[in-house]
């Protein structure tokens, strides 16, 4: 990337967190981005976090959109699927309805609105720390993931178990999918300064997706 401003990353990726309200999407994200855990109020509309990450020698800039699970914001979520390379479907292992909703509501939305046909889906069962209250077994999760072609992990934002891994696995898979990396090289064009167009020839990094 020989862009004029010399970005400090090789790829910029868009990830999306979806799932019913209260399953812990925001907590998961908070744990991942700032390694803290807090009692959060429900997300309003959509939240946004940035995380820089280096994976197998590549500097990645993750832009993570954390959507509200509440139904009253459902309409808004639809446009955030656009251009996402990875979608994290979160459910609460202690609430079965959040699990069944994934196939009945959320996966349908992904199919409807996602613009990346190769978009990576990741199924995440959260709150495994509450083992006593668990109602969705790991086997069910695995079966679901297999059926719908998702990655799968169980984690706990509270105990930080598997949280890092969850994002890493997803990102790794995205990075391994060339079609998803095609447009992630930073600035395609300089929107506000058309006279200084982004010049792909000048960028030595152009076209070396498989490096």
């Amino acid at each position: 990337m020989a862009g004029s401003s010399g970005p400090e990353f090789d790829h910029i990726l868009k990830l999306l967190l979806i799932g019913d309200s209260g399953v812990g999407k925001s907590s998961l994200l908070l744990r991942f981005t700032s390694d803290t855990f807090d009692d959060l109020s429900p997300t309003i509309g959509v939240d946004f976090k940035l995380k820089l990450m280096t994976l197998s020698g590549r500097r990645l800039k993750l832009t993570i959109w954390d959507t509200a699970g509440q139904e009253r914001f459902r309409t808004l979520t639809s446009s955030y699927y656009r251009g996402a390379q990875g979608v994290i479907l979160v459910y609460d292992v202690t609430r079965r309805d959040t699990f069944t909703d994934l196939s009945e509501v959320w996966l349908k939305e992904v199919e409807l609105y996602s613009t990346n046909p190769d978009c990576i889906k990741m199924l995440v069962g959260n709150k495994v720390d509450k083992d006593a209250e668990r109602v969705v077994s790991k086997q069910e999760g695995i079966a679901f993931a297999r059926q719908y072609g998702c990655l799968f992990l169980e984690c706990s934002a509270k105990t930080r178990a598997n949280v890092q891994l969850c994002f890493e696995e997803l990102v790794q898979k995205i990075v391994d999918t060339p079609s998803l990396l095609a447009d992630t090289k930073g600035f395609k064009k300089n929107l506000l300064r058309p006279e200084e167009p982004y010049n792909p020839q000048a960028a030595p990094g152009a076209g070396n997706c498989t490096c």
Binding site: K14, G83, K188
Partner: peptide
């Protein structure tokens, strides 16, 4: 459809 080159990034 790709990403996120926000105004700020420019």
């Amino acid at each position: 459809p790709s990403v996120l080159d926000s105004l700020e990034d420019q």
